[in-house]
Amino acid sequence: VPTEATPPAPAPRSRFSALRTDLPHPARMYDHYLNGKNNLPIDRAAAADVLALAPEVRQMAFANRAFLRRAVSFAAGCGIRQFLDIGVGLPAAGDTYECAVLATEEARAVYVDNDPLVLAHARALSTRPGRVRVVEADLRDPGALLQRAGGRSGLDFRRPVAVVLAAVLHYLSDADDPRSVVGELMAAMVPGSALLLSHLAADLRPEAARATAETYRHSAAPLFPRPLPEVCALFTGLSLVNPGVVPVASWRADRLPRPHADRQWMYAGVGRK
């Protein structure tokens, strides 16, 4: 577990190390799906190609944001006051801290990304001194990530933390070993912590998943949708919260409207340590 005496490791360079405006950018494309304004014509053109193949992707983006709100509220209701949001993406209404603070004014968050575009926006819009910290780190190096997220102005890993991995692990290839990445992150958390996770599904609408992944091959980061058994394996060693790993629009949403839920190919779940 990182300590304040341990100096933070330098953030590793990644495929996002330079701002690229000549390639569609996944964060900007996702912003466009959410009807945001932080995107460029090249992103909107790529997003249009995706939506032509799988128009439900826009509803999936909104369903993922709704899952995040419900999962963060659940974690806060369990007494968790610290949130580590990895791969936070471009700022949007209803982010992790905003959802948490609705449940408790004691909430604090560390937002992590390795993308300079995301980091620049997050830092420029951060108006919560002492409550939200933005750090640069790469999910593929969880040890260094934890060092940078901890310390005097970060999270206290002696207390429970909700680790948020919302729609980010499908950017890791099998060679990146996402299961080991999640395992190392959760090994550093104390009992009472939680994992809040969503991941594109390879087996709910396979043709749409394959076509979308093919489109993303021409963006700054490819996609790797995974089948249910592989997504469930990411929760190894944790106790799954009812109803388990389910389509994203169905996680604890029994009384909520779920438009096009049967067409959305993303899994979501929460695990407790």
Rank of each mutant, 00 (worst) to 15 (best):
P129I: 09
T3M: 10
A18K: 10
V246I: 12
R263V: 05
P129Q: 08
L169D: 03
A213G: 09
F74H: 10
G271I: 09
A137S: 10
N64P: 05
R70P: 10
Y216A: 01
A92T: 10
H32K: 08
P178T: 04
V134E: 15
A221P: 06
R65S: 03
L146F: 06
Q59D: 11
P243I: 14
L90F: 04
P8G: 14
V182H: 07
D138I: 11
A71L: 09
P225D: 05
D141R: 02
H218A: 12
A149V: 05
S73Y: 01
R205I: 06
V161M: 01
Q59L: 09
A124G: 11
R28D: 00
D176H: 06
L102P: 00
V135E: 10
P10H: 05
D156F: 03
K37Q: 13
P26K: 01
E230I: 00
A149W: 03
P257F: 02
D177F: 15
L238M: 13
D22Y: 05
P225H: 10
T104D: 11
L172M: 08
T215K: 15
R152H: 06
A220Y: 00
A188I: 04
D254M: 01
L234H: 06
R140M: 02
F83A: 03
V248I: 14
L196F: 00
C232Q: 08
V101T: 14
A109I: 01
V245D: 01
D262I: 04
A137L: 06
A188G: 02
I86E: 09
A120G: 03
T212C: 04
A109R: 02
E207Q: 11
A209C: 05
L145D: 01
A194S: 09
V134S: 12
D156S: 05
P91L: 12
H260V: 15
L51P: 05
R140T: 11
A188N: 03
S239P: 00
F83D: 03
D113Y: 12
L234G: 05
E184V: 11
R263H: 09
Y33L: 14
R58Y: 02
S180Q: 07
T96V: 08
D113W: 13
F157Y: 13
A11F: 11
S180N: 15
P12Q: 08
S17H: 13
A11C: 12
A167Y: 02
N64R: 06
F74R: 05
A233W: 06
A261C: 11
